[in-house]
Design a binder for these strands. Structure first.
Length: 268
DNA sequence: ATGGCTAACAACGTTAGA
């Protein structure tokens, strides 16, 4: 049986629970990972998920901002939430689910955006982002490499030149600076992760998952970035079947500025 | 270089997003 995983920075799950329902009806992922739920756990809108068979739910939310949630049609065998940088903020949820006669661990991560100024000595948010990426690397250093594992989320870094609308113009813009892209690429390499989206797109093809709210016409200006990612470890890489960026949701009424990414992993 | 938008909330401005 194949495994379909989706990740979506929803930018307020309460405001867009209806949109999430439409997405689930169309794509039927086995697991949906949300980021920026902006919702305390006791106010999370569970009904649309339960109604569609997503009975296993791991919430790591907080009031007002950040927050992640993992919702699954397969049962959780184990769950975990990690506190990065000792901040006590809601940026990680891990679940283990049955798959192909064994099990898969799935990490749902929301990396800090990093503020405006790409200088850690004057911008605490950027310092936090770099420290977060460093901690992720130390934590994932080989721990999942040989096991079936998936890492998804809004990593807030567009690692490759074709992951932004203009490589040259974004080299000094937070999300695409060399200190960020080098860190993300290093942590990907040390865990031997396969970038499932790039796996299906040639390196020169522009691929985006986020478009600013500030453009008059997001599609016409197309100044996007690829900030949302799905990575898999080697035991799963050979089973990758497809990857899709669901950019249609960006044109829905009152959309999130991020769109879903969906990856299908075939039977073992 | 600038400007422009959206969301939450001790809510009509501030903080956060990227």
């Amino acid at each position: 049986m194949s495994l379909t995983v989706a990740s979506w920075n929803i930018n307020s799950v309460r405001l867009r629970s209806r949109q999430v329902g439409l997405f689930l009806d169309r794509y039927r992922p086995d697991v949906l990972c949300l980021q920026e739920t902006k919702c305390p756990d006791n106010r999370f809108p569970l009904k649309p998920f339960r109604a569609r068979g997503y009975s296993d739910v791991l919430l790591n939310g907080q009031k007002g901002y950040h927050g992640v949630a993992t919702l699954s049609r397969r049962p959780f065998l184990a769950t975990n939430k990690r506190d990065f940088c000792g901040k006590g903020d809601a940026r990680h949820a891990a679940v283990t689910i049955p798959d192909a006669g064994g099990e898969v661990t799935l990490h749902n991560v929301y990396v800090p955006s990093g503020g405006d100024v790409p200088d850690p000595t004057v911008n605490d948010k950027f310092a936090h982002k770099l420290a977060f990426l460093d901690e992720m690397k130390a934590w994932l250093n080989g721990s999942e490499t040989d096991r079936p594992a998936i890492l998804v989320g809004d990593l807030n870094v567009a690692p490759h030149p074709a992951d932004v609308w203009s490589h040259k113009q974004l080299l000094d813009v937070v999300s695409h600076t060399p200190v960020e892209t080098e860190r993300l690429n290093a942590l990907q390499a040390v865990g031997d992760w396969t970038d499932a989206i790039r796996h299906f797109a040639p390196p020169e093809e522009k691929v985006f998952t986020w478009w600013s709210y500030r453009a008059r016409d997001w599609r016409a200006s197309n100044r996007g970035r690829r900030l949302d990612h799905i990575w898999v470890t080697r035991p799963l890489a050979g089973r990758l079947e497809s990857a899709e960026i669901v950019s249609a949701t960006r044109s829905w009424k009152r959309p999130s500025d991020h769109v879903p990414v969906v990856v299908r992993i075939g039977s073992a």
